[in-house]
């Protein structure tokens, strides 16, 4: 019985009917080269141009434009915004995902859809809507103005715009993971005497931590790169309400091409570092 089965297996593997095999090989390499070619043309090509051009007029010039006080300030603003928006959206994303998956309440479907709204809306529209809301004649703008708080053309509106734009990423990563792990582990923890808080920290959070980290990486990348919404609400004041991405445009429009490429380079490097940090962390964890 065994011998016969072995024989059969060898025959089907060894005979290696040439025609289907060639098709398979073609398919494999064909698909691969299409995927790689696409990546090369669409992603890596432009990115390497940035590297090339940034160093084009020499490292000295690059350093000069990067150490310009307004540029340094722009990076600072970008980092401050990210430092506020990322934690906010991380906490909100996890709470939101828990609400969508674990609590069956009327309107969960609507919440689920609304979370995706920033993905579908153009950032410029988001910026404009904030402008209308917080502007002098807007619903909230009036109130804030009366209390002497400057929202538009200042950091608060830029943070709000960035929070809005980068809102879905953590929730989007966590929702499917929560669905996949189910709630039996949490129920088991309850029967073992754990309260809601302990169960969240000891059982739920460790199970979704990779989804959260991945969501945080995407959120961070989105925050660093945000342009459209912030461009509308910031007022674009050099050295005050200018983020790194806005600074790129500014430099480019002032014929400081090398400077524009330099800032772009730093932004690209920051994103790449975030991605590398994630890939370095991940496999270590998965083996356990």
């Amino acid at each position: 019985m065994n011998v016969r089965r072995l024989d059969g297996a060898r025959r089907s593997a060894g005979a290696g009917l040439p025609a289907p095999k060639r098709v398979r090989v073609l398919k494999k390499f064909g698909l691969r080269s299409v995927a790689l070619g696409y990546l090369l043309v669409v992603l890596l090509g432009p990115l390497s141009m940035v590297f090339w051009r940034a160093f084009g007029s020499g490292a000295g010039h690059l350093w000069d434009s990067l150490s310009d006080p307004n540029t340094v300030h722009a990076f600072k603003v970008t980092l401050i915004i990210a430092a506020i928006a990322v934690p906010l959206n991380t906490v909100f994303g996890v709470v939101c995902a828990l609400a969508i998956v674990r609590r069956r309440f009327p309107g969960a479907g609507i919440v689920n859809a609304i979370v995706d709204l920033p993905l579908a809306l153009s950032p410029v529209v988001v910026g404009l809507s904030l402008f209308l809301l917080y502007g002098r004649t807007g619903w909230f703008g009036h109130w804030f103005q009366a209390h002497g708080v400057q929202i538009l053309f200042a950091l608060p509106s830029m943070v709000i715009a960035t929070v809005f734009i980068s809102l879905p990423f953590v929730a989007r990563e966590v929702v499917p993971t929560l669905r996949e792990i189910g709630d039996e582990q949490e129920q088991a923890a309850h029967t073992l005497g754990a309260g809601a808080w302990t169960t969240f920290w000891r059982i739920t959070l460790p199970s979704i931590r990779w989804a959260i980290i991945y969501g945080v990486v995407l959120t961070t990348a989105r925050c660093l790169g945000e342009y459209g919404a912030v461009a509308v609400v910031s007022g674009h004041v050099e050295g005050q309400t200018e983020t790194a991405t806005l600074r790129v445009q500014d430099a480019y429009e002032n014929f400081d091409v090398a400077g524009a490429y330099g800032i772009s380079l730093v932004l690209a490097v920051m994103s790449v570092i975030v991605l590398i940090a994630m890939t370095l962390l991940k496999p270590k964890e998965e083996t356990s």
Partner: peptide, 12 residues
């Protein structure tokens, strides 16, 4: 004490 059909083991 509760035992589930699919074990509900704490995987981590």
């Amino acid at each position: 004490g509760f035992v589930f059909q699919h074990y509900a083991a704490f995987k981590h």
